Computed example of a mutant assay.
Amino acid sequence: MTTRSPLRLLIASAGVAALLALAGCSSAAGPANTAEIPTGVAFEGYAVAGDSALKALASDSAALDTVAISGVSLTSEGGGVAASSSDALALLAKAHSATKKAELVVDNIDASKGVYSQAIATKMLSSESNRQFVIAGLAGEVEHGGYDGVQLDFESLSASNSDDLVSFASELRETLPAKATISMALTAQTSASGYLAAGYDLAKLTASIDRFALLAYGEHGSSFSEAGPVGGLPWAQQALAALLTLVPAKTVDLAVAGYGSTWPTTGKGGVISPAEARDQAGSRANWVSAQGEWTAKLADGTVLWWSDARSLTVRANAAKSAGLHGVALWQIATADPVGRG
């Protein structure tokens, strides 16, 4: 749980063709173990603070430009944010020691339910005093904690939140040091109007937001849909094409899944790492070029779909072709390793 210019992608159909061509011409003969980010494409890795993230940061260091440290949420009444944990600060220190930038990700997850909460976001966004308390907390993390910027990951919003979100972003920009970055995660929408309906008035937000991370995953998942790609190429390209009618390509990072989902014939499925998916699938693994993901049907009927190193490589090449700022990966601790191509 995100940078445009001359290379801006303006024609949706051309973008789809480019993505599918890149997917189909990948040279990997089987499930790849290390993604390759091409020169000129920025790479941000999401990290949930802990020992696994520290190890992944070390292994991915050559490819990383920025670490997005996740885990700080709005309080339940929307009037503040908890301070960074010691684990988060350790990850921040590790990122800086490797000369990487680090953004603090703040979200509207309701910890009691484990879901993004519009109610919590609305309590914060609709109250000027709550906005100021939250902004003061984030500014303290940047100015005293040492973060290089903030990423806003507010999801499950609606159009009713859009004006207040613009106000919050503007007030945050005015408060943070000029050198501090502000990025924003966007849930993928397949039309321009869909972004506004999801609470993102991008025409106004561009005045305060440096970079948008398009969360091009969540198309399918075992907890909410039938089996299908985690974030297939046609769906991701449709969301990207809609976004690029609203913001410059140079301000967009294409956020890619580093995980998969399982759909058993009985009982509940779940999230699975690429390594686990490969182990379970074995020779049943099938690369679907049109989607840029792997799938398998196990002997017991369980269906797997997963996005791995090869999936990220395809999307990173497509991001370069489309003139995007870069790619992001959720999340480095469980995804395949990443290097520079």
Rank of each mutant, 00 (worst) to 15 (best):
T295I: 01
W306R: 06
L298Y: 12
V314Q: 11
W294T: 04
G292W: 01
A322R: 06
L312G: 04
A309H: 05
A299L: 15
I332P: 00
I332T: 04
K297Y: 08
A299C: 10
S307F: 00
S307E: 10
A333N: 04
A299N: 13
W306Q: 03
A316W: 07
A296L: 09
W306T: 02
S321Y: 06
G292K: 02
S321V: 09
V314Y: 04
N317D: 14
L312E: 00
A316V: 10
L304P: 14
G323C: 07
A333R: 07
N317T: 09
W306Y: 14
L298S: 08
L324Y: 07
K320D: 06
G301F: 15
I332L: 13
A333S: 13
T295A: 00
N317C: 12
L312K: 02
L324E: 02
T302D: 09
W305F: 11
V303Q: 11
A299Y: 09
A322P: 11
V303C: 11
E293H: 07
K320S: 11
W294S: 01
H325V: 01
L312D: 02
R315K: 15
V314G: 02
A328I: 12
T313M: 10
W305V: 02
S321C: 03
A328M: 10
W330A: 08
L304T: 08
Q331L: 12
E293T: 03
Q331M: 12
L298F: 12
A296K: 02
A309W: 02
W330C: 06
W305R: 04
T302V: 15
A319P: 14
R315L: 09
K297G: 14
I332H: 00
R310V: 10
G292R: 00
A309Q: 08
R310Q: 15
T313S: 15
H325K: 12
K320R: 14
H325Q: 09
A309I: 11
R310L: 14
V314P: 01
E293M: 02
S311D: 07
K297N: 14
G301C: 14
G292P: 01
A299H: 08
T295G: 04
D308Q: 06
V314L: 12
T313Q: 13
W306P: 09
T313E: 13
L304E: 00
W330Q: 03
Q331E: 13
L304V: 15
E293Q: 05
A319T: 11
V314S: 01
G323W: 03
V314H: 02
H325S: 11
Q331P: 04
D300F: 15
W330M: 06
S321L: 11
V327I: 10
W330V: 06
R315A: 09
L324Q: 05
T302W: 12
R310G: 07
W305L: 04
L312Q: 03
L329A: 02
L298I: 14
S307H: 08
H325Y: 14
L329N: 03
T313K: 10
A299T: 15
Q331I: 04
G292H: 01
A328P: 06
K320I: 08
V303D: 06
L312V: 13
K320V: 05
T302P: 09
D308A: 08
K297H: 12
G326D: 04
V327H: 05
L329D: 00
A319C: 14
V327G: 04
W294D: 01
A318E: 00
G326L: 01
G323M: 06
D308T: 09
S311G: 09
H325A: 09
G301S: 13
E293A: 00
V303L: 11
W306E: 02
W294H: 05
Q331T: 12
